[in-house]
């Protein structure tokens, strides 16, 4: 369960000097090189990998914290119940909708904002600073903000802004719980996509665009034929990174809807939290955790390797 990604086929490490076999001193040299790395590596292995091994261990047991002495081996019973749990399936679907929906909308909005910001105009730095702010605000505070002053049916700013369009005292959070959570997430993550895509736009060679313009290409043609292909890998990277961070969303669900009504807006992190800390069912929640990890690894292995290969970030270890 160390979830090591398939190793990229890049040569790594310094090749031994020609005509020199690895000797005792070469080995010592190797350890001198490794020494600065070891504390961080050992620390990360201990703190991040051991809990996952324990998760697998617990997932094979029936154990409820409020019933001492209830701990016993049940092997795969927990997994059977997880897959028979229709709520779990619903929550898994919510997680996919919440993650992908928020990421894709944030990418599109971020692209629009990045294109608008990639021009020279008065106060560009200020506008960028304003746009970055939602990403920085503590997610718990952001969620509270949306739950109260923005989406409240009576006093909320959103209904006030929409009132000229005939929207009355719409109770967004109880009528559209999943969408309400997603709005808060999109608001927080659009700035990140904007920054990433802006970096992409600024890395674009201008002479190419100049040449196209000289040839009489219109703005739309330039965007479609030059800008978008150049941005493709940035869009991919944004999607993958956004998905990695957003699949773990907990704060927004916890603060805005508590997963409700029922499990209508619960995602996997919140559902597992409920099972573990409100239901005290260690075995069940551990089994769900393992299922989530396996699903994440399947998606992430392909996606991440693809993206980082296209960026070449993994290449060139000097």
């Amino acid at each position: 369960m160390t979830s090591t990604l398939e190793r990229p086929a890049a040569p790594s490490g310094p090749p031994p000097a020609p005509g020199q076999t690895p000797t005792r001193s070469a080995r010592a040299e190797g350890w001198v090189r490794r020494a600065p790395l070891l504390p961080a590596l050992v620390f990360t292995i201990i703190v991040t990998q051991i809990p996952f091994l324990l998760t697998i261990f617990y997932s094979l047991q029936s154990w409820n914290l409020v019933r001492p002495g209830s701990q016993q081996w049940v092997w795969f019973d927990n997994y059977v119940s997880v897959f028979q749990d229709s709520q779990f399936r619903g929550v898994a679907l919510n997680t996919v909708i919440m993650t992908l929906g928020s990421v894709l909308i944030a990418v599109v909005l971020g692209l629009v904002l990045a294109l608008l910001l990639n021009r020279h105009f008065i106060g560009r730095g200020i506008v960028r600073t304003l746009l970055v702010t939602p990403f920085l605000i503590t997610p718990v505070a952001a969620a509270l903000l949306w739950k109260t002053t923005l989406l409240d049916p009576t006093y909320g700013l959103i209904n006030f802004v929409l009132s000229p369009f005939g929207v009355g005292e719409e109770a967004w959070i109880s009528d559209f719980p999943l969408a309400s959570v997603m709005v808060a997430l999109i608001w927080q993550w659009t700035p990140f996509m904007m920054l990433l895509l802006l970096a992409g736009l600024q890395s674009m060679p201008t002479d190419q665009i100049e040449a196209a313009r000289m040839d009489g290409a219109g703005a739309w043609a330039i965007f479609k034929e030059l800008t978008l292909p150049h941005l493709r890998r940035f869009i991919e990277l944004g999607t993958v990174l956004g998905a990695i961070y957003l699949v773990n969303t907990f704060d927004a669900v916890y603060m805005i809807t508590q997963g409700g009504p029922g499990t209508a807006s619960a995602n996997l992190p919140f559902y597992i939290y409920q099972r573990a800390f409100l239901g005290f069912d260690i075995g069940q929640s551990a089994a769900m955790g393992v299922v989530v990890v396996v699903m994440t690894i399947i998606v992430a292995t392909f996606a991440l390797r693809l993206v980082f290969r296209s960026f070449g970030a993994a290449e060139g270890s000097n």
Partner: peptide, 25 residues
């Protein structure tokens, strides 16, 4: 760089992909 630099780098990044919720119990 140490040998297997790539593997180490990918090990580090892969820990960020594991959902925290699976480790909390």
């Amino acid at each position: 760089p140490v040998e297997k630099t790539q593997d180490v780098l990918f090990f580090f990044i892969s820990t960020k992909m594991l959902p925290v919720v699976a480790a909390i119990v």
